[in-house]
């Protein structure tokens, strides 16, 4: 595996959490958190374990090497390293905000993306905006450290419109959660 293995850490964190309780109670708690907290703190602690990340081009994914920070209506905008869907910034919303008449999902899948301006990695929550037909604009499907359905928190296919009044998918945002290390 490459030296840059942030979601490996996310996985370890999840496993630790799951290991400390039973898996089932972990998921039950996850469900309860979703109801209770409008912003679920996704993997906030995992960064502490990162030691001197390698940010050379040789250690970056193809997406990270080509990412930009100026235009959030393009698929290569840095925060979109694991997004799948229509960019809300092309649908009347913004990079972290929903278009009129739609509702942000309180839960999401997460990506760990590198900002090319400062070289830091940030946790990004890909919250869906829900309640209307698909926006259909600016379809992107980036897959850095994106895994499969058995790790839904790191899978970009799931519709995350849980806890919203409607589960219909409209578009996807990329909300900053915090610095990864």
């Amino acid at each position: 595996m490459s030296g840059f293995d942030l979601d490996g850490m996310g996985e370890r964190l999840l496993r630790r959490m799951a290991g400390n309780s039973s898996r089932r109670s972990f998921l039950t708690k996850l469900g309860a958190t979703i109801v209770a907290a409008p912003v679920f703190p996704l993997l906030p602690v995992s960064r502490a374990r990162a030691a001197k990340p390698d940010r050379s081009p040789e250690a970056k994914t193809e997406f990270a090497r080509n990412a930009q920070t100026k235009d959030d209506t393009k698929c290569n905008y840095w925060r979109y390293c694991a997004i799948d869907g229509s960019l809300c910034s092309c649908c009347g919303g913004g990079v972290a905000s929903c278009p009129a008449g739609t509702e942000p999902s309180p839960v999401s899948w997460v990506g760990t993306c590198i900002n090319p301006d400062d070289g830091n990695a940030y946790l990004i929550a890909y919250r869906d905006c829900c309640g209307k037909a698909g926006c259909g604009q600016c379809g992107c499907d980036n897959t850095d450290r994106e895994t499969q359905l058995y790790m839904p928190q790191l899978n970009n296919n799931v519709i995350w419109c849980f806890g919203t009044s409607s589960m219909e998918y409209h578009c996807s945002t990329a909300v900053m959660v915090g610095k990864a290390q």
Binding site: R15, L27, Y150
Partner: peptide, 23 residues
């Protein structure tokens, strides 16, 4: 059947079903 941490199914003849898991 609650099946935490697992997804993607296949039938298992005479047994039930199976799936892949995050561990």
């Amino acid at each position: 059947v609650e099946l935490p941490g697992c997804a993607s199914l296949m039938p298992v003849a005479g047994v039930g079903f199976a799936s892949l898991c995050s561990d």
